[in-house]
């Protein structure tokens, strides 16, 4: 079994602050220096996000299996659920499920909306999508390599249900960016 964080307390803290910064300033890419070396297909940033946020209290839906799933069960202790609709977190390394398949919470409890941890091929700032909304002074740019063409439309559709919705953390290599549900995304 590959290890988790070298320093479970301080590496988790550093990783959380990177995720916090990412969620507070959507689209701005954070680099995780203290990330673990997880089994394939998990990227270091993906693994760091999981170790930081997921535990026995958060049911996880995922499209990874084998050694990676064992690693998750061992280090996070999270129950793995068969349907995306049961998940607090969804870990996706392949094509993302429809956002509407994930729990969006209710108008009274919108915080029950799921968090999608989505591993992508690469993230790049200064190009791609045009982002605006809370956390962004004027505009942030974010290029998500191989994002499905339908994503922006689905995201906009979800935005109409606010405060219900799903929040996403995008991971690639050691990089991480976040898309809170308040975010508006336009094609670049």
């Amino acid at each position: 079994m590959r290890p988790g964080f070298a320093d479970p307390v301080l590496d988790t803290q550093a990783s959380f602050r990177a995720i916090l910064e990412a969620m507070s300033r959507p689209g701005r890419i954070q680099r995780l220096e203290a990330a673990p070396t997880p089994p394939a297909p998990l990227a270091p940033a993906t693994a760091a996000a999981l170790l930081t946020l997921v535990d026995a209290e958060t049911p996880l839906f995922t499209d990874v299996g084998g050694e990676a799933a064992d690693w998750l069960r061992f280090h996070c202790g999270c129950p793995i659920v068969p349907q995306p609709g049961q998940a607090a977190f969804a870990l996706i390394v392949g094509a993302p499920p429809s956002l509407s398949a994930l729990p969006a919470g209710s108008d009274e409890d919108p915080q029950a909306g799921a968090t999608l941890i989505w591993q992508v091929a690469a993230l790049r700032g200064e190009a791609g999508w045009r982002l605006s909304g809370p956390g962004i002074e004027r505009e942030h740019r974010l290029e998500v390599r191989d994002a499905p063409a339908s994503f922006i439309g689905e995201w906009a559709e979800m935005g109409r249900a606010f405060p219900r919705g799903v929040d996403a953390i995008l991971c690639a290599g050691r990089d991480l960016a976040a898309l809170p549900r308040t975010l508006r995304i336009r094609e670049g």
Partner: peptide
């Protein structure tokens, strides 16, 4: 660490839903 993780999750949801009180 478990308590911190629970609080951190709440903080992230709070940021994603500005002004909403997360229990």
């Amino acid at each position: 660490e478990n308590t911190k993780r629970m609080i951190r999750r709440a903080i992230l949801k709070a940021i994603a839903i500005p002004g909403h009180q997360v229990p």
